[in-house]
Write a protein that binds this DNA or RNA. Structure first.
Lengths: 217, 217
DNA sequence: AAAGCTATTCTTGTATACAAAACGTTGACT
DNA sequence: AGTCAACGTTTTGTATACAAGAATAGCTTT
């Protein structure tokens, strides 16, 4: 919306993602205002924008508190992401165009070229394109928007997952399987494959949760 | 968040829903401020809150514009609602408690008592509870929250649908089928039944869209 | 007379000043 | 000494004042 509030919201979002702000921390308006060299007004607008993404919780007359998702939250979010992508795949299987299939194959090819180089950043970029094409080809603009929103929100937590040994190659195989199912127009197969592909990324947090609850006993 | 901004956001939301503000209309800040007897500040905060629900589009240095969803948008949203509820049902089939099954049966019983009386409001209230229990029993708090958000957003468009002849009785039957599937722990059956139950509500807008495109040719 | 440019005005974006509520601290009372 | 209450401080919520960009209208020019 506004120039400065927009910029500030982006900056704050980045700092929440990279852990500069820890969970539960209260963000002081005047302090942030001084830090950005602006008044409290654009700070407050930025904070409101961030509640929208769920990164911040705004409690009346108490202030803005950083809301870092815990393992349980992340597990839930990955589960929903997996289901939403599965829906996209199922719908796309019937609605996808030949041109889009070609673009999917392209993104996949560029993806696989990154694997031997160990180019995680490059892989991640092309991977995002691959998924975005499937969202779009669902033919449902609302679904597409929701998927992009959640994908973006989970981004920082998914990157770590990609660095695990052998995960890149495995993911490539899953991409190929999804593409093949879409080519065949087999919606259920595409959905199941993509659901599993995404659900795997949540496993890390399931393990983290399991070890934590075990330690608490 | 804030007392007045919160109230104002609710009021504006109501006016958008009931059609007081038409699609594309620009909302003047000073005019609204005068109308509510407050300054521009809480008005601006309320408007920001409404962008979050997608009811308003905020364009930089141009103002706030009402975004009434068209038939295409509604069709997409109902499709996503159907899929999300299907996911809830599938997950709930494995995770639901006996107590929750009893509450579902209760809500259903209260629902069916409203049908012969033609009590649409009562039906709608109990119907919302029925669906909310299924969201909750998915065991996924994030999914539950997303479902509640979308359900709430679609509320004004669903009510009209309920007034169609025979729809209430038909919907009751679908509720019973979902409950039965959940009792059996048959996730796929519960998902398919609930998906269809919700998808029917989007049909009205598909017809509206079809007649509109036909008229344009 | 029409088109383009400029100036004025209207509206949004930001800063500051003020009000009210919540928190912490200190003091009095039991 | 402990607890509760009142006061002061800090911080959020709201109002108003100011700045900057966008729309519009009027003027000039061709």
């Amino acid at each position: 919306m506004e120039r400065r509030a927009d910029f500030i919201a982006d900056q704050l979002e980045r700092r929440i993602f990279d852990g500069t702000f820890s969970d539960g921390e209260r963000l002081d308006e005047v302090q942030l205002a001084a830090q950005f060299g602006v008044s409290r007004t654009p700070i407050r607008e930025a904070l409101q924008r961030l509640t929208q993404s769920g990164l911040i919780e705004l409690i009346a007359r108490r202030g803005a508190f950083v809301r870092q998702p815990g393992p349980v939250d992340l597990l839930d979010m990955f589960e929903v992401m997996a289901e939403l992508e599965a829906v996209c795949a199922r719908l796309a299987a019937e609605r996808i165009t030949d041109a889009a299939l070609a673009r999917l194959a392209d993104a996949n090819a560029r993806c696989s070229r990154c694997v031997p180089k160990g180019d995680v950043d490059g892989y991640y970029r092309e991977n995002a394109i691959f998924h975005a094409i499937i969202y779009q080809q669902s033919g449902n603009a609302f679904l597409e928007a929701e998927c992009l929103k959640l994908h973006r929100r989970l981004q920082p937590f998914r990157r770590n997952q990609l660095r695990l040994r052998g995960r890149l190659a495995q993911a490539m195989g899953e991409h190929e399987a999804v593409l093949a199912a879409l080519r065949e127009g087999d919606g259920e197969k595409a959905a199941a494959t993509l659901r599993q592909h995404v659900a795997v990324q949540g496993e890390k947090f399931r393990i983290m949760l399991a070890s934590r609850t075990a330690a608490a006993e």
